[in-house]
Design a protein around this nucleic acid. Structure first.
Length: 253
DNA sequence: TTATATGTTCGATA
DNA sequence: TTATCGAACATATA
């Protein structure tokens, strides 16, 4: 998303914006505020902290984007809006960029700076930059289920629902296992694995169809048989309010 | 009709 | 006070 946004906005002067979410909570600012911050300006550096994207504006402030579960970016030129368009940037070149979001869990918001946002929202540092030892230390002695802890964005940011399942499968850890019952060594292993999963997913542009064949995400469905575990069909449960898939034979409590 | 889905927040409860 | 839990949000699809 960051790469797409950066590519789409590079050197582009914003001449107009459109809001298309009448009641939604996608917008955190008034149309007036968006206009003042963006029109006549362009985007500079972009920064990502986990699932939170920040783009610097030449006006000095930052635009923060979060894609929720169904948010997306679409470059287009014609008159017809992409489906579920919530926000449009129109550039001097004639290019347009749409923020689409079916479920409207996404966020488009003007903020002072990524740092300020991170502090105000108790957001951890990005998963890819946290040392595995710090990762392990952050979870050690917690009573919560490991999966729930992985999904919190305050210790380190970037792990979402399918990635948590992917990592716990790889490491052979049951998602309901309390953090405090997992050794520091194992937690470090989880950290390492999480990083490599995120890197591989980014390599594939986080496009499901392009994930490596061996990814557990490809078998993340109740009753499916993972090739390495032909006798232990994938089981579904709920952990931390989220659908969770495991191979029982490999992930025991 | 019911359950589920790449996520976060907020009020209630422990 | 702090940690944890669960509902809520909005919409489509199976």
């Amino acid at each position: 998303m960051r790469r797409y946004f950066t590519e789409a906005t590079k050197g582009q002067k914003i001449v107009d914006i459109e809001l298309h979410d009448h009641l939604g909570k996608v917008f955190k600012n008034s149309e007036q505020e968006y206009r003042e911050a963006m029109i006549g300006n362009s985007f500079g550096q972009t920064e990502r902290i986990g699932k939170y994207l920040f783009a610097e504006l030449t006006s000095g402030s930052y635009l923060h984007l979060h894609f929720g579960m169904t948010g997306n970016l679409v470059v287009f030129r014609g008159e017809e809006l992409p489906k579920y368009t919530r926000f449009v940037w129109r550039f001097e070149s004639g290019d347009k960029l749409a923020f689409t979001d079916l479920r409207k869990f996404g966020v488009i918001e003007l903020v002072e700076s990524p740092k300020a946002y991170q502090n105000a929202h108790n957001l951890g540092e990005d998963l890819l930059s946290i040392p595995p030892k710090s990762f392990a230390q952050a979870l050690a002695n917690k009573k919560v289920a490991i999966k729930t802890a992985l999904l919190e964005q305050k210790h380190f940011a970037g792990i979402g629902n399918w990635i948590a399942d992917e990592v716990l499968f790889n490491c052979g850890v049951h998602p309901k296992k309390p953090c405090q019952k997992i050794s520091l060594e194992k937690l470090e292993e989880i950290a390492q694995d999480a990083k490599s999963v995120v890197k591989a997913a980014i390599e594939a542009d986080t496009h499901y169809g392009d994930f490596p064949e061996h990814f557990f995400a490809n078998y993340r469905k109740e009753g499916i048989l993972h090739p390495a575990h032909p006798k232990s069909p994938v089981e579904r449960m709920v952990v931390g309010g989220r659908g969770t898939f495991i191979v029982p034979e490999k992930q025991r409590l």
